Amino acid sequence: MALRNIKQLVPLLDRVLVQKIKPETKTASGIYLPESSVKDINQGTVLAVGPGALDKNGNKIPMSVKPGDKVLIPQYGGSPVKVNDEEYTLFRDSEILAKINE
C-alpha cells in the first residue's frame, strides 16, 4: 500500500513527523556547489505530531512541538519514511534536540 498524500500519515503516541531542510546546492550568485562540499543540515520542519504518550498514571504528557515548528534534530536516528519521492523522518518527542524560534 503506497501513501499518496503525507496527510494520510498520522504519528502515534509521542512521535513527531519531520521533513529535513535540504542544504542549498547553489550559491546566491548562481554557482552550483559540488555534492562533496554540501553538508547536511540538522534542522527540519515539523509536519505532524502524535497525541502524546501516557505516564504511569494514565495522564497524557503534552507534546513539546507542534506542526510548523522549526526544530534541531539529531544527525543520526529516527525512522525514515518515504512517501512518493519525498523523504521524511519520524522521531520521538524526546529525541528532538531544540525548537528554533525565528
Score class of each variant (00 low, 15 high):
15 R>N: 05
87 E>H: 07
10 V>D: 09
27 T>M: 01
35 E>L: 14
4 R>N: 15
82 K>Y: 02
51 P>N: 00
97 L>N: 12
31 I>S: 12
56 K>E: 13
37 S>T: 11
5 N>F: 12
96 I>V: 09
62 P>L: 08
31 I>F: 07
34 P>T: 09
80 P>C: 03
38 V>G: 04
96 I>K: 00
69 D>A: 10
18 V>R: 00
76 Y>E: 15
33 L>G: 06
74 P>M: 04
61 I>V: 14
46 V>K: 07
88 Y>Q: 09
16 V>F: 08
1 M>T: 14
57 N>T: 02
35 E>N: 13
23 P>T: 07
23 P>Q: 14
4 R>G: 10
82 K>R: 09
12 L>E: 15
101 N>V: 13
21 I>K: 09
65 V>P: 01
72 L>T: 09
81 V>W: 00
42 N>L: 05
34 P>H: 07
35 E>Q: 13
30 G>R: 03
77 G>L: 11
18 V>A: 08
39 K>P: 01
37 S>P: 01
30 G>D: 01
4 R>E: 11
84 N>M: 06
63 M>Q: 04
55 D>C: 09
86 E>M: 15
17 L>R: 01
65 V>H: 06
69 D>G: 05
100 I>W: 08
36 S>M: 12
50 G>I: 04
86 E>D: 09
56 K>D: 10
3 L>G: 00
35 E>A: 15
2 A>F: 06
53 A>P: 05
34 P>M: 11
59 N>A: 15
16 V>Q: 01
85 D>H: 08
92 R>I: 04
65 V>G: 02
90 L>Y: 10
86 E>S: 15
67 P>L: 09
35 E>F: 14
5 N>W: 06
84 N>V: 02
7 K>E: 07
63 M>N: 08
54 L>C: 04
13 L>G: 05
2 A>P: 13
22 K>I: 06
50 G>E: 09
71 V>L: 00
88 Y>P: 12
